[in-house]
């Protein structure tokens, strides 16, 4: 009997190893190891050529937090997080309510229409919007010609004051469809009779949304918030395509900062320090989120 049990557990272990082994090995080699490697490099002044022999301790980190563009980058990332949570996700939810539930002619058209930007590659979206914002022949300049007495050249991306907001508009436009589709999927799981019951009890449409629909799609909202926040910390391609963090580093985000000050200057030790900071920000958010928000819903 004992023997059979042992044999069974050995078999089980073998199966586990077989199933998760390859993924585990790949994940360790390409994700876990580089994190530790990066952490190690971040303690050196290293230019990518030659041996790692200039140990500087935490100097890279001290320099990092004293660097103006890095602080701009953090503020910009937080701005994306905040704006996304405040404006993008509610708008996506609103659209989902409008076109995701009732079957009316054209619903599919609207859905595809709002989802379309998400299908575009980030770089292509950035390049298209560079044309839209182009001060010489772009949309805003043409519009000013229609409204005002004569055309004024409007350079949203050229002005450090407005450039980041201009880029946020693109981020808003680009990802709203994605969140909308998530919510539409969630809304299909809301039991119709629950809503009907609420209406019979005399709830107004807003009350139905607040007390019935939102609690019912809580899990979907959590996923959407999670993806939005992590995505906001890693936003790169669009910002890169639209201005590489410029002008004057005003649109720098953490990842463009890493590219500009680590990679472009061949300062790989310093760049690793930036990467480690991004890693920790995401990690801390993830742990807190899992613990307080996802954990809450389970209990």
């Amino acid at each position: 009997m004992e023997n059979i049990k042992t044999l069974y557990s050995v078999k089980k272990l073998g199966l586990i190893l077989l199933l998760i082994g390859p993924a585990f090995a790949l994940f360790t080699t390409f994700v876990v190891m580089p994190v530790f490697q990066g952490a190690y490099y971040s303690l050196f002044d290293w230019k990518g050529i030659g041996p790692l022999n200039d140990f500087v301790g935490v100097k890279n980190f001290v320099r990092l937090f004293g660097h103006e563009p890095f602080r701009t980058a953090i503020v910009n990332n937080l701005k994306v997080v905040l704006f996304s949570l405040l404006f993008q996700l509610p708008t996506a939810f609103f659209f989902a309510l409008l076109i995701g539930r009732q079957k009316f002619p054209g619903a599919i058209v609207f859905r595809s229409f709002y989802f379309f930007p998400y299908v575009l590659t980030e770089i292509i979206a950035g390049v298209i919007w560079r044309f839209i914002y182009n001060p010489q022949f772009g949309f805003l300049t043409q519009l000013s010609g229609l409204i005002g007495p004569e055309k004024t050249e409007i350079a949203m991306l050229g002005n450090p004051e407005t450039a980041f907001n201009a880029i946020f508009v693109v981020i808003f436009w680009k990802y709203i469809g994605f969140h909308m589709i998530l919510y539409i999927a969630g809304l299909q799981g809301v039991p119709k009779d629950l809503e009907d019951a609420a209406v019979i009890d005399g709830a107004s449409p807003l009350e139905v949304i607040w007390h019935v629909i939102i609690p019912s799609i809580r899990n979907t909202i959590m996923i959407s918030v999670f993806l939005s926040v992590i995505g906001s910390f890693n936003v790169f391609d669009i910002v890169w395509a639209m201005g590489q963090g410029g002008p004057d580093h005003s649109t720098e985000t953490l990842v463009t900062y890493l590219y500009n000050f680590g990679y472009k200057r061949f300062a790989f030790g310093y760049g690793s320090a930036v990467a480690i900071v991004i890693f920790f920000l995401c990690l801390v958010f993830n742990v807190l989120y899992q613990k307080y928000i996802v954990g809450d819903s389970r209990s």
């Binding site: 182009n134 001060p135 010489q136 050249e153 409007i154 350079a155 991306l157 050229g158 002005n159 450090p160 450039a163 639209m242 201005g243 410029g246 002008p247 004057d248």
Partner: peptide, 15 residues
């Protein structure tokens, strides 16, 4: 030109 801060060299050459 207006917006030179965010113009590329290619745009410069185009002008």
């Amino acid at each position: 030109q207006e917006g030179f801060e965010n113009a590329t060299y290619d745009q410069q050459a185009g002008l």
